[in-house]
Every structure is written in C-alpha cells, then in structure tokens.
C-alpha cells in the first residue's frame, strides 16, 4: 500500500464519513428475543434448528444479541471475546462486564450499579414498564 493513499483514508474526516454512512446494525431481535437458525445437511436431509433466547434479569427483559452455533456454543455480539456452552454463564458474564447497567441486585453478590438500568438494552415498552414499576 502506498503511504499517500493510506494517509488520505486515515484522515479523521474520511474515517468519520465512512462511519456515518454505515447502515445501522441489525441484530435480528424483536421485543427482547434473539433468534438464530442453525442449518446442516445430513444424508440427503436438510436440518434447520431455530433457537430463540428471551432473557430477563431481575424481572426485566433484556435486549441481548445472543446466538448459538452448530456446536452449541453460545456467543454474544456485546462480548466479542467470550463464548460459553451455557447461556446462563453468558448472562452472568454480561452482568460482570457491564457493571453500570444492572443496578445493585436484590440477592447479593452482584456488581454495584450507578445508572439503575438506564442502559440495559431493554425494549422501549419494557423500559417504560420498568419506570412505572418503580413509582
């Protein structure tokens, strides 16, 4: 690669322009449900397994982009360096990795939060319901 080409593309203006044009990511989530479809062919048959995760923490529905691959490993786009054989372990890791987004927890052992679930990735309807519930 020639340096002038790289330097031009590296300018903050070019990088910002590129980022502003990116389509908004779609995580195939509807109302707090994350869905993945595993497909495979075996002895002339086509297998399709549709898996839907609907996660709640402390009773609040969580919009969390979980998926499961053909080996059964659970991954989450929000934590790109982790995968687990258990969705429960993944949600535990989410609570550990986003300490400001889950509040203090009712049963002890949780991580202290300072934003009271303001950015829990909850669907709008659930977020509104959560506000009502605290009145």
């Amino acid at each position: 690669m020639k340096s002038p080409h790289l330097a031009d593309a590296a300018s903050p203006k070019k990088l910002a322009t590129y980022l502003l044009k990116l389509p908004k990511p779609s995580m195939h989530m509807h109302g707090g449900k994350a869905e993945s479809v595993r497909e495979a062919d075996y002895k002339g048959h086509h297998i399709a397994i549709r898996t839907t995760y609907q996660v709640s923490v402390d009773g609040r529905v969580l919009n969390v982009p979980l998926g499961v691959d053909n080996r059964g490993n659970v991954h989450c786009h929000s934590l790109p360096n982790y995968q687990f054989t258990s969705a429960v372990d993944m949600v535990k890791q989410l609570i550990a990795s986003f300490p400001g987004q889950f509040g203090g927890g009712k049963r002890g052992g949780g991580h202290g939060g300072r934003h009271g679930g303001m950015h829990m990735g909850m669907p709008n309807r659930a977020r509104r319901a959560g506000r009502k519930g605290r009145k």
């Binding site: 990116l22 998926g67 991954h75």
Partner: peptide, 13 residues
C-alpha cells in the same frame, strides 16, 4: 464493525 454480521444473522456470529 463487530456488530456487522457476515452474512447477516449467521448463527456462528
């Protein structure tokens, strides 16, 4: 970039 699935919705993430 990390949230851009290739292809979209692939189960492998």
């Amino acid at each position: 970039t990390m949230m851009t699935m290739t292809p979209p919705n692939n189960p492998s993430g």
